[in-house]
């Protein structure tokens, strides 16, 4: 069973981290990723540029409307994801809890809905 783990955090707070703390966090992410690659749960992962770089696109009456910024203003912003393979929700939750960002932000665990092809 596949899950997408969406990492939400307050960008402003992350930006305020000292270079040392930011370095530690990055190192922790590296270690965590390595561990789930080894356990075979890893499928993909990426981090995202801040919401200040986001554009939102809608098509209305055949016309493309593009606006600056994220889809919704929230206190915590989507900052990255892990795409994993897990036995069940309990395992997915246990993996999500080990993501370094879970200690200050939030991880949303979403089951993948496979497409019939």
């Amino acid at each position: 069973m596949q899950y997408l783990l969406l990492i939400y955090a307050n960008e402003a707070e992350i930006a305020k981290l000292s270079p040392d703390s930011a370095g530690t966090l990055l190192h922790e992410y590296g270690e965590f990723t390595k561990s789930i690659v080894q356990s075979g749960n890893f499928k993909a992962a990426d981090r995202l540029r801040p919401v200040s770089t986001a554009s939102t696109v809608r098509v209305r009456n055949g016309k493309t409307v593009t606006s600056d910024g994220p889809f919704a203003e929230t206190r915590e912003q989507l900052g990255g994801y892990y795409f994993i393979e897990a036995k069940d929700l309990d395992q997915a939750i246990a993996i999500a809890a080990r993501i370094p960002g879970a200690r200050h932000g939030s991880i949303e665990v979403r089951p993948i809905w496979p497409m019939d092809r």
Binding site: M1, K87, D88, L89, D90, V109, P111, W113
Partner: peptide, 9 residues
């Protein structure tokens, strides 16, 4: 759909 296990923890 989220596959909550049918298990004793």
């Amino acid at each position: 759909e989220a596959n909550i296990p049918y298990e004793t923890p």
